[in-house]
Design a protein around this nucleic acid. Sequence first.
RNA 1: UGGGGCGUAGCCAAGUGGUAAGGCAUCGGGUUUUGAUCCCGUGUACCGCAGGUUCGAAUCCUGCCGCCCCAGCCA
Length: 556
Amino acid sequence: MSETETRDFIRQIIHDDLESGKHDSIVTRFPPEPNGYLHIGHVMSICLNFGVAAETGGKTYLRFDDTNPGREKSEYVDAIERDVRWLGFDWDERLTHASDYFERLYEAAVRLVEMGVAYVDSLSADEIREYRGTLTETGKNSPYRDRSVAENIDLLGRMRAGEFADGEHLLRAKIDMSSPNMNLRDPALYRIRHITHQHAGDAWCIYPMYDFAHTMSDAFEAITHSLCTLEFEDHRPLYNWFLDQLQPEHRPRQIEFSRLNLAYAITSKRKLNALVEEQIVSGWDDPRMPTIAGMRRRGYPAAALRQFVKLGGVTKKDKLIEMGVLENCVREVYGETAERRMAVLKPLKIVLSNYPEGQVEMMEAMNHPGNPDMGTREMPFSRELWIEQDDFMEEAPRKFFRLKPGGEVRLRFGYIIRCDEVIKNDAGDVVELRCSYDADTRSGTGSSDRKVKGTIHWVSCEHAVQTDVRLYDRLFTEANPNSAEDFHAVLNPGSLETVSAQLEPALDDLEPGVAVQFERLGYFCRDSVDGQAINRIVTLRDSWAKLEKQAMQQQN
RNA sequence: UGGGGCGUAGCCAAGUGGUAAGGCAUCGGGUUUUGAUCCCGUGUACCGCAGGUUCGAAUCCUGCCGCCCCAGCCA
């Protein structure tokens, strides 16, 4: 961290703890439940937990919080490891599972029972809910609350031994049924689940609850700072209760921060899963998904994601960050690193009537205008070319400086051309343009410095490579689909458009996952899953589109 | 109506008693064979509101308002 940067409140606490000697080194953990793919919200937690440790020479565990086998899968475990690694973080040998601690956790539970602060309840789930009370009414004690220690030990042992059916008994902490904090109204510690665990197999039929397992796992791993999101703030008294009761050797401190919400995106694993299950998207890695896998496939670089969460900061204020911020981070990375190419997304044919038939010239094109070291390539130029439909307007407004009837435009790295004739089909659509080129304006020669207002991109018809290009837009029409009654109602029907594009020859062997800029259009990369189609990662900033939009609004 | 948090410009966010950083967006302008990049410039933020303390408050006190979270044998 540079001297001018200020520390967020968590880094400040950690800095103070190091300075005061409370801790010699920092240990954090990123504890995902393997019940879905990681998304942009997790990116923040990952960067914070791994970042804060790395900055201070500390360590970070990647710990799977796998205490609910009913909805966890090893597919998710694999995806999570892949995603964290791709983001640029390394846990070395510190890959753990809460389930690795099931035996120790059970021992701790037995101790709570022996201490008289945990008991086996035999109420039904419905009864427990009734006994719990509500936000404004206190709960009441379970009739089983005062079972003897001996009886509790016996029952707990038999729960573990598999003598009871799911839901028959429940181990609970004995705290305070009248607490205004619902988490303290005798929270569940262990429930019976006769189900195979994706990591522990069939070793157990009772599984610990989050609060208990998470707190003690933190203690077992000597985590110094247990960083989590705001919704766990009122779990902290319970977290501390476990530590007070069990007095583990290491006492971690839980600190909460606000989660990062991305505008026009959903960050709820349940809803993300619904998008996948209902086949609204092609999978967790659909390029429109705000998952790490989706963004990676889309072509977002890890560095952009890291930069994005860094810009967001760490606070306790609810945040809904604009999509543009993320997109800018992507543009920033690729603006410098991506080679430039030309491709026509929505082709319109032009014929240069005064250009010799059969002639082909090789035009030299820079791979990066700001960095000559990135070299050049050659683009074949011929009589028939594709240009972008949007680059021609029959009745052009004043500020439109692309091609129009009788108007001139430069073909980038090529010649200046003039539009002489517009050819339409029976329906009145423009299907072809007859143009003439100024032979004295070849890029880099003669009077090539003659100025025309506009420059457009092009591809030689004869040499073009036709490929499907997928144009992505936001998945939702509402800035905060998280709070929509039903997210189906705010889905963007135009979130994916596939076009048949014409690419310059040099793009034929574009490797999957390698980002290039299609000049004047945006950043693109070949899809790494199907290896064929090309994904639009993000458009370039487009001030013409902005002008057009403003004009439209003024008309309406 | 119980408890826990949060409220600084459109979106993030510094600032922790001395008179409101920065980024993104916006809006101007310059350069440009990408209307991109780059470079300049651009914002009266009644610091949620109302009182109070103080020579002085976004920062301290009191009251109020708004938003978020909690009643899973989910995490």
